[in-house]
Design a binder for these strands. Structure first.
Length: 600
RNA sequence: GGCCUCAUAGUUCAAGGGAUAGAAUAGAAGUUUCCUAAACUUUAGAUCCAGGUUCGAGUCCUGGUGAGGCCA
């Protein structure tokens, strides 16, 4: 743990010890723990002790108790200079020198807040995991941003992390695209059409659906009912036949499958690159879809599973308040659960140091993962205790749910382009970028546009659903990514002019402006926030923390002059403080995958 | 039908059981001879309903209502 981090922990710990000692001495009572909170803005003070919980061991008036404890602390703890009691809240004023020493302790550390070294468990974080029959859409964007960000947060909190995805590269869906391309494609390729590979394949997936629906209509016109028509349509049978051939290893089908998946991967790579996400290792369903069956056999012998009369294998989870769940069909074929069991075990085999996995998958799969984790626990894997489903809400449009087959999706590539264009037009209008080349401008627009999009999505609690209105949703003013980037850019402008020289420490006896102290308190929180975000798997905590910090800085920036300050010591402190604020902003947003511009 | 989430200003989001529920947007009003006005300052506006637990409930429990999802 870094020095500055330790210091802050020490203050809380020290205060806790002192409060307990105070209660012992003043009231001869044993306090099990002390409740702290940051003092609210409307009151004087920095740290607040909540008196109410003490009433369980000390009889009396909370205000009187608070006052007595306050007097004790003021007398015995050097860091406490003043106190006041409001109702049952003991507000403590912490000395400026404490905060300035904290500042001196962190000022030279460019990665303040990040854990040093990887002392915690290695964790595998799975996210994205697309099907290879269509391009990525807005829902994938939320998934990718969340997964990537949680992985980065876990790293910052001291975990070793493997980022992975399981690519759903086999199955009926990809056969549909393949079949449609074969029948209507006329040899079209990404090169010949100028379409991105994933979009090209997606086009044929839609084409399949259209033709399939037409066939159904025809069959219905011939007197079939809807269900039989859907089952008997020749296109569907052909797709199913293709899947059988694929599973049998038919050369022609496999070659086509490889070609079209290759197009899709190229397209995905571009999207991932634009989105700024990456992976350490990949899993393909075509490699893993047969896994898990041996484990089911073992589980049967161990009595974890049981066999029904028809030969299908089940697990009984009624004791856990769930129901019975099938793990192998009567014909011996696998279900999703079988694969997932096998894949989880495979991963631990591949990366023996991992102790914990995070699955970034939408909340419609809550039940599936509950069951999966329970099964793995019952099978006796110790790491099964440390599995986590990072469940998140759907992204809905004002028009309702996104359905790729019906074309009511917000395409990931289009959306990123739109955001970049919006950023460009706002920037051009403001016209602050003289001296920037075309390329520099373009990369800046992208940084801002994506910053807006990423922040917009990540600031929301993952479990809540998002209603996304493409026209109005993503803003560039107020509580937004660009607002935070702008603050960073302004600080960089100051730093360019300031020309720092000499040692980077300040005198602990400096007078502190109210805003400066607030900023120091905010900075002090950063390591704790990372820890909280890691435990809650919530990038939203980082986003909101950064926003609070930036808000505070803008207020400071408006109220006091940094470069115009006459006193050299104070000026130096303010410049250094601004620099550290910028660094923390940058390091915090790095955890969200958002980059910071030097100018904007 | 069974189970799982969610419900906070007009709108989009905050609030580890703690003080007078914070922001942003949209609305009203102000701040450019001064470090980037994508900023700052002021103003008005909200906890779905009914019970319960608690010194204290937006937060926990029960029952409704509404939205979404999963399982047949």
């Amino acid at each position: 743990m870094h020095l500055a981090n330790k210091r802050m922990m020490e203050l809380q710990q020290l205060l806790e010890k002192e409060v307990i000692a105070a209660v012992k001495e003043l009231f001869n009572a044993d306090l099990p723990s002390v409740e702290f909170q940051p003092t609210r803005k409307d009151f004087e003070g920095d740290v607040t002790v909540v008196v109410f919980p003490m009433l369980r061991v000390v009889k009396g008036n909370p205000v009187e108790i608070g006052n007595k404890v306050g007097e004790y602390l003021q007398k015995n703890v050097a860091e406490i200079t003043k106190f006041n009691v409001v109702k049952g809240f003991l507000n403590l004023v912490v000395s400026n020198s404490y905060y300035l020493e904290f500042f001196n302790g962190m000022v030279a550390n460019p990665t303040f807040g990040y854990a040093t070294g990887s002392s915690k468990d290695a964790v595998m974080v799975e996210y994205s995991s697309p099907n290879t029959n269509k391009p990525l859409h807005l829902g994938h964007i939320r998934n990718n941003l969340l997964g990537y960000s949680v992985a980065e947060i876990l790293k910052a909190a001291g975990h070793k992390v493997y980022k992975t995805q399981i690519i759903n590269d086999r199955g009926i869906h990809i056969c549909k695209s393949m079949l449609a391309w074969q029948q209507f494609g006329d040899g079209e390729t990404p090169e010949s059409s100028g379409l991105k590979g994933d979009h090209l394949v997606g086009k044929y997936y839609v084409a399949f659906d259209k033709a399939y629906k037409a066939e159904i209509e025809q069959l219905i016109a011939k007197g079939k009912d809807k269900e039989t028509a859907a089952k008997e349509a020749p296109l569907l049978s052909a797709a199913q036949e293709m899947l059988r051939k694929w599973e049998a290893g038919d050369k022609e089908v496999v070659a086509l499958w490889k070609k079209m998946n290759g197009w899709v991967y190229e397209g995905f790579d571009t999207t991932y690159k634009n989105l700024g996400v990456d992976f350490d290792t990949l899993y393909y369903e075509s490699d893993t879809y047969l896994l898990g069956r041996d484990v089911v056999k073992d589980g049967l012998e161990k009595g974890v599973f049981f066999k029904k009369d028809d030969g299908s294998v089940w697990i009984d989870l009624t004791d856990e308040g769930l129901d019975e769940k099938i793990v192998l069909r009567s014909d011996g074929t696998a279900v999703y659960m079988t694969q997932d069991i096998g894949t989880a075990i495979q991963r631990v085999t591949d990366f023996p140091d991992i102790n914990g996995m995070v699955y970034t998958v939408g909340n419609e799969q809550d039940y599936h993962f509950k069951v999966l984790f329970l099964i793995l626990k019952k099978l006796g894997f110790t790491w099964a205790e440390k599995l986590h489903h990072l469940s998140y809400g759907m992204v809905d449009l004002p028009s309702g749910k996104m359905k790729s087959r019906e074309g009511t999706v917000v395409d990931a590539d289009d959306l990123m382009d739109n955001m970049t264009n919006t950023a460009a037009s706002i920037s051009e209008e403001l016209g602050k970028l003289e001296g920037y080349s075309k390329e520099e401008k373009q990369s800046l627009y992208k940084m801002i546009g994506l910053g807006a999009l990423k922040y917009y999505i990540l600031k929301v609690d993952p479990k809540k659903r998002i209603l996304f209105n493409p026209e109005e949703s993503v803003d560039f003013q107020g509580n937004t990514g660009p607002f935070i980037q702008y603050t960073y850019a302004r600080i960089q402008s100051i730093l360019r002019k300031a020309q720092l020289v000499g040692s980077e420490t300040v005198s602990p006896s400096l007078e502190l402006h109210e805003k400066e102290k607030e900023l120091l308190k905010q900075l002090e929180m950063f390591p704790i926030k990372i820890e909280e975000a890691a435990q809650a798997y919530s990038p939203a905590l980082i986003a909101n923390y950064t926003y609070d910090l930036v808000k505070e800085f803008n207020s400071f920036y408006q109220q006091v002059s940094i470069l115009g300050e006459a006193d050299e010591d104070i000026k130096k402190f303010r410049v250094l403080l601004s620099k550290k604020v910028a660094e923390v902003i940058k390091n915090a947003f790095r955890l969200l995958g958002v980059a910071m511009p030097e100018r904007m």
